[in-house]
Design a protein around this nucleic acid. Structure first.
Lengths: 147, 147
DNA sequence: CAAACTGTAACCGCATCGGTTGCAGTTAAC
DNA sequence: GTTAACTGCAACCGATGCGGTTACAGTTTG
């Protein structure tokens, strides 16, 4: 529970690679190579992106993954919310307790505070698009890239 | 990795209880009762708050925990940063990779984006103080509370 | 047919969390 | 000075989730 999974990073990385293909497709093995990971993990993550309508997959020989939306219409928040589940903050699962004034009422207020904080994080993620990210990637790297 | 620990919630709950004591002290057992948890966990969390200078502990019979600062000078961010460690987002631990243009340069940019998002969350947490939270607790609950 | 893909399920090893027990150290009450 | 009520800390447990891997069924192309 020391933070979220690395699926967001994997998802954004994959989306940036696909955007760099400009309509073309990539296999899970190619993406896994660039991530230093393995194809099964990539398919697990991209499967969630497909369920969220961000990418498409085609089966069979010559198949692979491609974007289902324009890169400028995909934000980091879209990727994040597609692959991470549940809330960032956790609460105690225990009975609300008790004869204690504070314990009785703090629950809802704490939920509000945590939700506000998470919303702030999500709004910040929503301010960056895959197109914008890719633009900065291509600007900082220089040579002509593969993939 | 499905989120943070519940230590933030425990810490904030405990701080609110201590603030409600207005200078008085509470034992870890009393706080654990209100949380539906156990004293060892409470001491683990409050120990971190003490290291951060938010509370004080006194040993021995009649000992316990009290605030080391005015409630209006303690924000939810103070509690959060004292008990949670590391970043919210994780990255792949694997070799940066590769011959891939995107993989080569995305690392730093992704770190920037994640840091910005986390900072937004932290700033939101910093906008609420323990005093403000307690005020709302006492306003929504009505009777005279114990503790 | 064979080859190259996706899509899943199953299992492993590992880290971390919350929970618990046990015990040493400290202070106050008697 | 003995007892009681605390903190402080180490050790261990079970559960959970993650990333990694193997295996295999299904699908499409050559």
């Amino acid at each position: 529970m020391a933070g979220l999974s690395s699926r967001s990073a994997v998802a954004i990385h994959a989306l940036a690679m696909l955007a760099n293909r400009r309509g073309g497709s990539l296999t899970s093995a190619e993406i896994a190579d660039s991530l230093g990971s393995n194809p099964v993990l990539v398919r697990r993550v991209l499967g969630r992106l497909r369920d969220a309508g961000l990418v498409r997959s085609t089966e069979g020989r010559g198949g692979g993954w491609s974007l289902a939306r324009a890169p400028r219409d995909i934000t980091l928040y879209d990727a994040y919310t597609a692959v991470e589940e549940g809330q960032i903050f956790s609460r105690h699962t225990h009975p609300p307790s008790s004869a204690c004034e504070v314990g009785r009422t703090i629950g809802v207020l704490l939920d509000d505070e945590f939700r506000s904080a998470e919303r702030a994080l999500e709004e910040q993620l929503g301010r960056t698009t895959i197109a914008g990210l890719l633009q900065r990637i291509l600007a900082s790297g220089n040579g002509a890239g593969s993939h």
